[in-house]
């Protein structure tokens, strides 16, 4: 009797393990970015903790003139990018692809969107409002934000995305076309090329798997 109970436990845990393996590719997205090992003493023993790269606090203004901070995204995943409204090259495609995600996660409260303008001179609150209403989206689901140039470029670095002024580029700026996926703990979970439909499909799949996994853990 005791033996069969034991083998039952082994069997069940084996099933769990294989099912974990099955989900691994999409559920266990790694936490990206630099890590810092921190040594500390617990009960006289030295243990090593890992500090994961975390998006620092921020404060920007969205298309409605409201403040947007980390609290805006509490308990949610968000997808973020860097763009500007008059960008003639990749931004229109990024906007189009972000719209696909916006429509797909429309009823999902745990998913939000954050687009930063890198043209803080031209893209005022009013210009952003106009842009958002032309593509028929609204805050708090999709925030288009502006702020001081230093803050925007600084936060781009934290997302490990590039953004810079460049008079030689069409429109005057260079920036990455990345969609960056952030989890409720402010960790970066994925980078996707926002100009490539296949990459956007991958983001969709992986985010859905993360959401499903969170439900299971509840």
């Amino acid at each position: 009797m005791r033996f069969s109970l034991f083998s039952l436990i082994v069997l069940i845990s084996a099933i769990f393990q294989t099912s974990c393996v099955e989900y691994k590719s999409e559920n266990n997205l790694p936490i990206l970015g630099p890590r810092e090992p921190i040594e500390k003493e617990v009960d006289g023993k030295v243990v090593v903790d890992t500090i994961y790269h975390t998006i620092p606090n921020f404060s920007f203004t969205n298309q409605d003139g409201n403040e947007v901070t980390q609290k805006t995204f509490a308990n949610s995943y968000y997808i973020t990018d860097f763009f500007f409204t008059s960008c003639p090259t990749i931004c229109p495609v990024m906007t189009k692809n972000m719209l696909i995600l916006y429509d797909d996660f429309e009823g999902e409260e745990r998913v939000k969107f954050l687009s930063h303008t890198i043209d803080t001179r031209h893209d005022s609150v009013e210009v952003l409002k106009n842009y958002a209403s032309k593509i028929e989206v609204s805050a708090p689901k999709w925030n288009f934000v502006t702020g001081s140039k230093e803050d925007i470029y600084g936060i781009a670095e934290s997302y490990l995305a590039s953004a810079a002024e460049d008079p030689n580029s069409p429109g005057g700026y260079i920036h990455s076309g990345a969609f960056v996926l952030i989890d409720p703990n402010n960790h970066i979970r994925g980078y996707y090329d926002g100009t490539q439909p296949q990459a956007v499909e991958k983001l969709k799949r992986e985010l859905k798997a993360l959401l499903k996994n969170d439900e299971k853990l509840k």
Binding site: P88, P92, V93, T95, L99, K134, I135, E136
Partner: peptide
């Protein structure tokens, strides 16, 4: 194509 689209349909009220 970036603005007017692969299908020529533009993008909502923008293009």
């Amino acid at each position: 194509q970036n603005c007017h689209g692969i299908d020529g349909n533009g993008l909502k009220g923008l293009y």
